[in-house]
Simulated assay, not measured.
Amino acid sequence: MGNDETGHGFDHIQRVVGLADHISQSYPKADYVLTITAAYLHDVIDEKLVADTVAASAEVRQFLSDQGLTIPQIDTVFLIMDNMSYHKTLDGTAKPLPLEGQIVQDADRLDAIGAIGISRAIYFGGHFGEKIYDPAVKPRTEMTHAEYRNLDNETIINHFYEKLLTLKDLMNTEAAKRLAEHRQQVMLDFLAEYKAEWNAEA
């Protein structure tokens, strides 16, 4: 992930690990090793970042085996990685996550909102040549997986309404819900200011 230019680089990984560590302190029943392992690896087989997900998955399985993880532990890490992405909620294919996966999912979603989320959304959209804003283009609702991946029908500002502002209410843990409240307000304030400046309001 060192050369990533979409907002999913190692800095993102480090923040997700830090957030997962913070959240896990409130949930001692969660397996800490599996939580942090999944946090570090959660993006390495993601379809939007990896050209060959099958090869990437095989490489990760071998890596985890080499580190001494058991097959059940590896299966749990993959269950988390395979089912935590937002797009899985759009087509209803996501399997229920164990507590460790809920923590990692919350950490990943927290890094998608707030001030960091704003900068990552702009960075991601710029990388793929998205239009910043067009008031005539309305946010999409009830998207399928294919529609979600189709950036031709999206603007960067609309992405906040289509996804980012919905994440607060999708948090699994109470610890994450508390953190999400402030980050949500940061985004709402940004959008209000952005539109005021767009319309050249004094």
Rank of each mutant, 00 (worst) to 15 (best):
E142I: 08
G117K: 02
A136F: 05
H145N: 13
D111F: 09
Y194K: 02
R183P: 00
D106W: 13
A115V: 04
D75I: 03
K131T: 11
K195V: 07
T76G: 08
L164H: 11
A112K: 14
N158Q: 05
L164C: 02
F190E: 02
M84P: 00
I116N: 09
L151N: 08
N172Q: 10
T89H: 12
T155H: 04
Y123L: 12
L191Y: 12
L97A: 12
L170G: 05
F124S: 08
D189N: 09
D108G: 08
K131G: 05
E154R: 15
T144R: 06
S119K: 15
K177Y: 10
F190Y: 13
G129M: 01
I157N: 00
K138N: 07
M81F: 13
N83V: 11
G114N: 06
H127S: 12
R140W: 05
Q73V: 05
F190A: 11
S119P: 04
I132H: 07
A175L: 06
D82Y: 05
I74G: 06
I132A: 08
H182E: 15
E174A: 04
L170N: 14
I156R: 02
V104T: 10
N158F: 00
G92Y: 06
K195M: 13
A192W: 07
E193F: 02
F160K: 01
D152K: 14
A136C: 01
L79K: 07
A94R: 07
I132M: 15
D75Y: 09
F78D: 05
H182N: 15
T89G: 15
M187Q: 10
E142L: 13
G126D: 07
M171V: 04
L97D: 06
D91G: 11
G129L: 05
K163N: 02
H145E: 13
R109S: 11
A112N: 14
L110Q: 05
A146E: 14
D134L: 03
A176N: 01
Y161N: 04
P139F: 04
I103N: 06
P135C: 01
F160D: 03
F128K: 08
E142D: 12
R109M: 14
F128G: 06
G129V: 03
R140F: 03
D108W: 10
P135F: 03
A121G: 13
A146N: 09
N172P: 00
L110E: 03
N153R: 10
Y161A: 04
A175W: 00
Y133M: 04
N83D: 03
Y161E: 11
Q102W: 07
T141L: 12
A136T: 14
S119D: 15
V77G: 09
D189L: 11
K138E: 10
K177V: 06
M84L: 15
L110N: 03
T93P: 09
T155N: 01
M84G: 15
V104Q: 02
E162W: 06
F160I: 10
Q105R: 15
N83E: 14
Q184H: 12
D111V: 03
P139N: 05
P135G: 03
T89F: 14
Y133Q: 07
D91W: 03
G92V: 04
M81W: 00
K131S: 10
T89D: 10
G101N: 12
G117N: 03
